[in-house]
């Protein structure tokens, strides 16, 4: 696959890889614990977008079978294309996991602030070196 084709056909993937690296960079480069948590959030969001992207079917609609209560099948000759619902469902779980992780991380950050008097990692490291 040549470059233009890779860029145009897979643009969604390029975007979410970029987003993921932004998140990872924030986690590594920022000293502020809250910012680290936000970076982690962006990183997780990119992974969630990955699942959503792969579930998209071109021209697909919401996976609800039309028709009355009497039957579930016939829909007037033309085939309906559905998006894949499964990855979306999985991501509901992943979002819950992400929320729980964020809540816990923020709770720990509050505790750290209480103990160290700072939310900056570098200052906490200095504090540890001074106080043992």
């Amino acid at each position: 696959m040549n470059l233009p084709e890779a860029l145009s056909g897979l643009w969604a993937y390029w975007l979410l890889i970029a987003l993921m690296m932004v998140g990872l960079y924030i986690v590594i480069a920022r000293d502020n614990l809250i910012k680290k948590v936000m970076g982690l959030n962006i990183f997780q969001a990119a992974a969630i977008l990955f699942y959503v992207t792969m579930a998209k079917v071109e021209g697909g609609t919401a996976p609800i079978v039309p028709g009355g209560a009497d039957h579930g099948g016939g829909h007037g000759g033309h085939e309906i294309v559905y998006s894949n619902p499964l990855p979306h469902v999985l991501m509901l779980t992943a979002i819950v996991v992400g929320v729980a992780t964020t809540a816990l991380a923020l709770a720990l950050a509050v505790r750290i602030h209480g103990d160290y008097g700072t939310s900056e990692e570098d200052e906490a490291v200095v504090y540890d070196m001074e106080h043992g």
Binding site: V27, L40, Q44, T101, A105, L108, Y116
Partner: peptide, 18 residues
């Protein structure tokens, strides 16, 4: 005090792994 800090590092690493 450092237990909480260790837990925070563990969380960051663990979440990236997850």
């Amino acid at each position: 005090r450092r237990a909480v800090m260790s837990a925070f590092y563990y969380l960051v690493m663990g979440t990236i792994g997850g």
